[in-house]
Design a protein around this nucleic acid. Sequence first.
DNA 1: GCAAAAGTGTTCATAATACACCCATGT
DNA 2: ACATGGGTGTATTATGAACACTTTTGC
Lengths: 232, 232
Amino acid sequence: MLNKAYNKQSKQLISVDCSIFGYENGILKILLFNRNIDPYKGNISLVGGWVNDNESVENAAYRVLKKLTGLSNVEIEQVKIFSKPKRDEGGRVITVSFNALIKIVEHNIDLVNMHGAFWQKVDSIPNLIFDHNEIAQNSLEFLRQKASYHLVGRDLLPQEFTITQLRQLYNSIFQKEFDPGNFRKKILSLNAIVRLDKKDTSESKKGAFYYKFKNSEDITINERIIKFSQND
Amino acid sequence: MLNKAYNKQSKQLISVDCSIFGYENGILKILLFNRNIDPYKGNISLVGGWVNDNESVENAAYRVLKKLTGLSNVEIEQVKIFSKPKRDEGGRVITVSFNALIKIVEHNIDLVNMHGAFWQKVDSIPNLIFDHNEIAQNSLEFLRQKASYHLVGRDLLPQEFTITQLRQLYNSIFQKEFDPGNFRKKILSLNAIVRLDKKDTSESKKGAFYYKFKNSEDITINERIIKFSQND
DNA sequence: GCAAAAGTGTTCATAATACACCCATGT
DNA sequence: ACATGGGTGTATTATGAACACTTTTGC
């Protein structure tokens, strides 16, 4: 610090805003918050909350997630900080955006409904308050970037899943169709999932083997999974 | 916001801490701040400052950089937010870490000295206050990640440079020796630099052509430049 | 002429892509 | 028996890494 006078320095309001992603019926969705109370009643926003004294921003994000979905042990990740002085019309608020991936089937839908939240397809996000559209877009981009270099799915798919389901998840994230054969070979080459002695026969007569993720500790992925560029 | 009562919510102290990287004599360096005034006199830290009312965190980072190096128009980038409640012994401070790349030759060395700052090789960063070692390490990792997918150098090298100089910069960032022939081919294939009709004869009898960067608008790099993994 | 850096070319291994083809089975 | 998704194999091309070789020029 050039001049660290703690008590003379003005303080700021800090919030977290979470882009909570879930995957359902082959579609990637984001959890949005429909404000049925003032202020900003009738507006839609990301799910957020204040950062309190004596807690980290991660802690605040966990708190918000727990309150809204009933889930603890959610994977969250810092994305970016948004701090333009006028971004929040209610006052000067600096917000930290987080990404969270959750299994829609496991969360507490009643809790979500009770808070006036709802799941929305990521390709049709409505107008949100403040800069939340920018934040959500940035978060989606971040998720794509992440899915290009890490195998996502552990936090979005059921514990046991087929490679086709994993591919459809990737299809929905990147909004493109991956070749079934090549996708399968690529994923298996990562050595990150193991086949179970069990088939899903709901999608085909032949049946597709279920797989599960190995423990994260046993996975090391140092290569790109998906070649993805803005221009695709 | 689940419950947005602006005036009831406690505020926090926000700072920025910059990992300012420069490149000199084939060595990647970071600008550190030697505190010769209280508090924390005699301790070494990253270069930082408070975030004031009515300014973005980026603005605060620019302000700090300008004050210390005399440079405006510096490339900065958000890296991560550090917010553990006890990270700063002087009180609860949330800090946003930034990376900045500057040309050491162009900055104002007197200003730097006057503030008690100094350049240090990135591979021998001393003990820093608080969590600044973690921040610096994270920033270096971030820079490597960035250099893997974007051509860095525009902000670190002189306007006119040889491919060998660019390679040496990459050597210093990744702490490894890239093959001269392969590196040259890779870089040229990116179509991001143009050859000038001018040679640098200081390093060899034959002389090496100078190059300069194209305008950023004219560059699109969608491929990996350097294959880099933690395990290298 | 030779040392030394600049720059080009060649080879081999691996990875990405497109796509043909076989497999299993419920109807 | 055939349609359908599951799964494997193959051919082609692109990329990466190692390294030999050629160029230039000051000494």
